[in-house]
């Protein structure tokens, strides 16, 4: 079952890393542990509703820190291999803000949810009108407004960590 998807995984990892995201491969049972590692040393950690629903244990690692936690953990419904993008489609106000205001955004993506390219992601968008605010996220926030030179982490998250699960 893994075979047909492997080239997607390879392409996704290469592209995502090329734009500055960190990708970690994680076995299903080790997820919460991996999250704990990824959130090491952070001031506050929040997880989205979907993450809580799938991994009830993840509640245990949540902790407050300032108004908004430094680390946010969300679950992506879709990844785009050719672009190295993850789709963020949170459905509550709090979850959307959590993912935008954090410093480090940890996104869980199941490898079977990878599609080839953006064109292949559009049908998903059309089929899910209940997701009213959908963002294709590719790497950390960046700007090149000063001398067209790239700097990372202007308004959105400075780090994007993708946990690619089996």
């Amino acid at each position: 079952m893994l075979a047909p998807a492997t080239h997607l995984v390879a392409r996704f990892v290469a592209q995502a890393e090329a734009v500055g995201a960190r990708v970690m491969m994680v076995a299903a049972g080790e997820l919460v542990g991996a999250l704990e590692d990824a959130a090491e040393g952070a001031h506050g950690l929040g997880v989205t509703t979907e993450v809580r629903r799938h991994w009830p244990l993840s509640r245990a690692i949540e902790r407050r820190g300032g108004e908004w936690p430094e680390v946010a953990v969300s679950l992506s419904p879709l990844g785009i291999a050719a672009a190295g993008s993850v789709v963020v489609a949170e459905r509550t106000y709090r979850d959307r803000l959590l993912c935008l205001l954090c410093v480090r955004h940890i996104v869980i993506l199941h490898h079977v949810d990878l599609v080839e390219d953006t064109a292949a992601a559009m049908p998903w968008l059309g089929a899910h009108p209940e997701h009213r605010y959908v963002t294709f996220v590719t790497g950390p926030s960046r700007t090149s407004d000063i001398e067209r030179i790239l700097s990372v982490g202007v308004h959105g998250p400075r780090e994007l960590v993708i946990l690619l699960t089996e």
Binding site: S85, V137, G139
Partner: peptide, 18 residues
């Protein structure tokens, strides 16, 4: 626009989200 192939964010908003 940018001389890059993807931007960090492409958002699709269909109606008020909440």
């Amino acid at each position: 626009a940018t001389g890059q192939l993807v931007t960090s964010y492409v958002s699709w908003i269909t109606g008020p989200p909440d």
